[in-house]
């Protein structure tokens, strides 16, 4: 719990009340993002390279910086 206290001290702007308010909103947001992702999955196979195995195997780069 020492870590918790430490955070509270150094980041005073995120006190408990704010967190309580945010909790349901962040769940809503997560749900919404999940739903959008589901729609995207319906069409993602069109975007993927035809032969995924060969594509991944052939993607070899020379090392750089």
């Amino acid at each position: 719990m020492a870590e918790r206290e430490l955070k509270r001290r150094t980041a005073p702007s995120r006190e408990a009340p704010e967190v309580e308010e945010e909790a349901p909103a962040s769940t809503d947001k997560a749900e919404k993002l999940k739903a959008e992702l589901d729609d995207l999955l319906d069409e993602i196979d069109e975007v993927l390279e035809d032969n995924a195995e060969e594509f991944v195997r052939n993607y070899v780069q020379k090392g750089g910086q």
């Binding site: 993002l33 999940k34 992702l37 589901d38 995207l40 999955l41 993602i44 975007v47 993927l48 390279e49 995924a52 195995e53 594509f55 991944v56 993607y59």
Partner: peptide
């Protein structure tokens, strides 16, 4: 991460599936 996680769930595949590798690169 979220995309790959959802893709694996839908297709019942693992992270070592070539399609996941392609998603990662693409």
């Amino acid at each position: 991460y979220e995309l790959i996680d959802a893709y694996c769930a839908r297709h019942g595949c693992d992270l070592d599936d070539a399609r996941v590798g392609a998603l990662d690169l693409q």
